[in-house]
């Protein structure tokens, strides 16, 4: 709740750091990989990282109930991400087909 002298190890800190790490990993993957499928995977990692952050923002410690708004936001984010992933994958499939057709 307050900035202590020593950061106490609490679940929100642990998972928050994990979320940021996952986002950063996804970012590196999205920019530095060439394989198309793997880039989609990396972007999906980024979105899970963002989800971690919002879930952590909602957490209120054991006795208190969590804040429902970020939960709703993450659910929205998950659905949006699956839509974007599906479109990206459809593009990948189509592109591969077109490239193969051109080669032969």
């Amino acid at each position: 709740m307050m900035f202590g002298t020593m950061p106490q190890l609490t679940p929100d800190l642990i998972y928050g750091v994990a979320g940021i790490a996952v986002f950063a990993i996804g970012l590196v993957g999205a920019l530095c990989t060439q394989d198309r499928l793997r880039r989609v995977l990396a972007l999906k990692l980024c979105s899970v990282g963002a989800g971690f952050l919002l879930v952590v923002a909602a957490w209120r410690g054991p006795p208190a109930a969590p804040d429902p708004v970020p939960h709703a936001l993450v659910i929205t984010g998950i659905v949006v991400m699956v839509s974007a992933t599906a479109v990206a994958l459809a593009l990948i499939r189509r592109l591969q087909t077109l490239e193969t057709e051109d080669d032969t």
Partner: peptide, 17 residues
């Protein structure tokens, strides 16, 4: 699409913060 998703996710991360 890649650029769009990444841009939107960076935006979302900012929104989260």
């Amino acid at each position: 699409m890649y650029a769009s998703i990444l841009g939107a996710l960076l935006f979302l991360m900012g929104v989260g913060f």
